[in-house]
Amino acid sequence: MTEPLLSLREVAKTFGETVALAPTTLTIDEGSFVAIVGPSGCGKSTLFNVIAGLLTPDGGDVLLRDRPVTGSTGHVGYMLQKDLLVPWRTVEDNITMAKRLTGRVTAEDRAEARRMARAYGLGEFLRHYPSALSGGMRQRVAFMRTLMTHQSLLLLDEPFGALDAQTRLEMQQWLLQVWRDAQRTVLFITHDVDESIFLADRVVVMSPRPGRVVADFTSPLARPRTLDMLTEGHFIELKGRVMHLLHGGAT
């Protein structure tokens, strides 16, 4: 499980005068869960948009399994804080949205969507429209839609940022469960340090603008993760170091 899935080589992006992303190099192993933390406006979303192909970097390469994909789309799953469910489709049809947009939704796709929804707590809501769901449930649907892209690499940009603390904690455990079963590689942006350490194998810390990687920690926590790990000594220690980098010693 140590094949590099994604390699960024010196990718940079400038908007006019604003250097959104300083030249950044990063390697992500297949099957890993990597969190990216950094202050607001440091270029995290810009980095994702470059990886996803929505933005062409000013320089550098994006390689997926050693294949250059710089500036092209169609090779990642992608999820934002906004769930972006379409209100005119049922939960089931939202989950199969990627296939509807790129190919043909087959009976197998539908069956897979239903199986997944039932396994992860949404079986009752397959025929509901998204407007009937709570924020947490909507994000679950959005994540299943992301899984149904069948891409190895999933980019999650602050997916739980809009949820209340209680729901967020539930969603984190839910995500770990689904991720363990689905065997995908996850890049996860958050500004919540607890969340990054609790979820990830690696915590990548970015500096304020112009954004660049300033530290790359390996999480000391074993898997599966449990809630009492949040108060473990290893956890507190790593949290202190990340906070120090983000807030200049104000821990």
Partner: peptide, 9 residues
């Protein structure tokens, strides 16, 4: 943008 990332025409 999401549709574009998925590779939709």
């Amino acid at each position: 943008n999401l549709a574009k990332v998925y590779g939709a025409s």
